[in-house]
Write a protein that binds this DNA or RNA. Structure first.
Lengths: 208, 208
DNA sequence: CCGCCTACCTAACGCTTGTTAGGCTGCGAG
DNA sequence: CTCGCAGCCTAACAAGCGTTAGGTAGGCGG
């Protein structure tokens, strides 16, 4: 009884959540194809056949992870924006978006990085199932950018859907090289924000 | 004899190159895990076992494709730069880089898009084998950017390695959504160049 | 105590994959 | 004509995979 109780305590992540957590971590690190159910089961402390008690299929696991990943980013970005003053300048708004996105991706990001890492690899049906959540986040960003452009804060000639694609593409690519143990995600976010917002050319003429 | 000769003519890509071409196309479209040797062989008009006459392993095919993909981008960017005047302004130089990269990726890009698409999915040893070619391109870009910064054309406070990562990340991400049948890659390149170089904020104050 | 339910285990299945070893054919050169 | 080589075919193998069906054990409630 006491021994069993200790075991349950240590394997607090056993069960459905444990499987999802283990899978998200493995997919985020190793990609889709390199992760088998046997690997996930082992990381979760069970055997592969047992996974079917909790999930109908491998794809069902992946579908949940993909959705949770995008939702986590959306929520983090939303939280960062909510923490701003109502009249915060556009620069602060956009910086908050970039900070939120990178934080969700690089610092709390098993599910998020799994999504970014494997979305393009999963079977088409699984990918399609993730589109609604994905599109909700995209629309959220598009709306925000559109408002900022309407206010005159963002240049009127900027193609906003393209900018959003460019932004997300660049942010998600950080996953391949950024090491949270070595680097400062917030500093990275601020560097990126600066470059996106102000551009890299020296505006005091082409030469100093 | 005549019938055989016709057959050879129509299967002009049979052999080593035919296998590589077929594989690059399949990998670029479907990713790493979804493409088997049997699929590649079928697309090349042969049977899977025959591939071993030309290549030692599946990984050997992939290794060649990855290298050719990066080299194609590097060459295209190099050609675009060589076509510029020696005193071309920084804006034109950087635009040429972006145009070259996107052209190689989106318009002549089986090998290139295969590289971008599958690099993160292949076994670690295969990935490592691609690093020298990859690093050569990165160094090339870094050197260019460094020169432009030294000339004062790029702001002195820009972290160039980060900018280069951001740039390549954004450019490569276009592969996931851009359709060359529907869109204008050069227009896209110029949009991206404008945003990267000038930034998106309205510099006539935060509001018009 | 018994039965039910939760949460797992196990052995096996069918399928797919990369690969191998042996074979065949056509063409060109001697 | 013969031989050698290039370039393929074929059947099979071993390994790994997602999945299934049947089983077990523990805990809880009646």
């Amino acid at each position: 009884m006491m021994a069993i109780s200790k075991e349950v305590t240590e394997n607090a992540e056993v069960g459905r959540k444990g499987i999802l957590d283990a899978a998200a971590q493995l997919f985020g690190r190793q990609g889709y194809g390199a992760v088998s159910l046997r690997m996930i089961a082992e990381a979760a402390g069970i055997k592969a056949g047992s996974i079917y008690y909790h999930f109908a299929s491998k794809d069902a696991i992946i579908t949940e992870i993909l959705d949770a990943g995008i939702q986590a980013v959306h929520d983090e970005v939303g939280d960062r924006l909510a923490a701003l003053d109502a009249d915060a300048p556009a620069r602060d708004v956009l910086r908050a978006v970039i900070r939120g996105h990178l934080s969700a991706l690089l610092e709390h990001g098993d599910y998020t990085s799994a999504n970014v890492r494997i979305f393009g690899q999963v079977p088409p049906a699984v990918r399609d199932a993730n589109l609604p959540v994905r599109r909700a986040y995209e629309s959220f960003l598009d709306g925000l950018l559109s408002d900022l452009q309407a206010q005159g804060a963002i240049r009127g000639d900027i193609n906003l859907p393209r900018f959003r694609l460019m932004l997300i593409g660049a942010l998600n690519a950080t996953l391949e090289w950024f090491d949270p143990q070595k680097g400062d995600a917030e500093g990275l976010a601020d560097d990126y924000a600066d470059m996106f917002l102000t551009g890299i050319l020296n505006r005091d003429g082409e030469k100093t």
